[in-house]
């Protein structure tokens, strides 16, 4: 077992733990998802067909779509949502959406590209108030 601590900017939302699903692609709740089925639906997305439910998602950045600010709240209300979302750099909309939904979200990692630092399948603990993500890897 290996444990790695990653420092990031202070985020929003509660402390959560879960399994990472990582891509170097970008993210928009409006463009990329089938929110009813809980999967990535845009064919060009690198995670097309995969479920995001209860995962800790890791992306490069967020794209367009002001509506996403409502969507995290709506997704969470139905229990078909990720546990947390991490970015290299997020745009304001997703951060605003996480603030409304009380979903954990962090970005700006000091050690470099978070989509390379974290691997799919890693177990993570996200502590937004501390700006800290802990990776446990077997």
């Amino acid at each position: 077992m290996e444990t790695i601590e990653l420092e990031c900017h202070v985020g929003v939302g509660p402390v959560v733990s879960g399994e990472a699903l990582v891509t170097d692609d970008n993210f928009s709740a409006r463009y990329d998802l089938d929110r009813i089925a809980g999967i990535f639906s845009r064919p060009q997305h690198k995670l097309a067909g995969q479920s995001y439910v209860d995962k800790i998602m890791v992306f490069n950045t967020a794209k367009g779509g002001v509506a996403s600010a409502w969507m995290l709240h709506e997704m969470k209300s139905r229990g078909v949502a990720p546990k947390a979302i991490l970015f290299n750099n997020v745009n304001p909309i997703l951060a605003q959406g996480a603030a409304l939904a009380d979903m954990a979200m962090c970005d700006r990692f000091g050690d470099g590209d978070v989509t390379r630092l974290i691997r799919t399948g890693d177990q993570l603990v996200v502590q937004p108030e501390l700006g800290l993500v802990t990776i446990t890897r077997s």
């Binding site: 509506a67 409502w70 969507m71 709240h73 209300s77 139905r78």
Partner: peptide, 15 residues
Amino acid sequence: IMADTESLGEAGVEF
């Protein structure tokens, strides 16, 4: 404000 009901959903409208 952007607040179409597709993105609001039932939860957003209740909010």
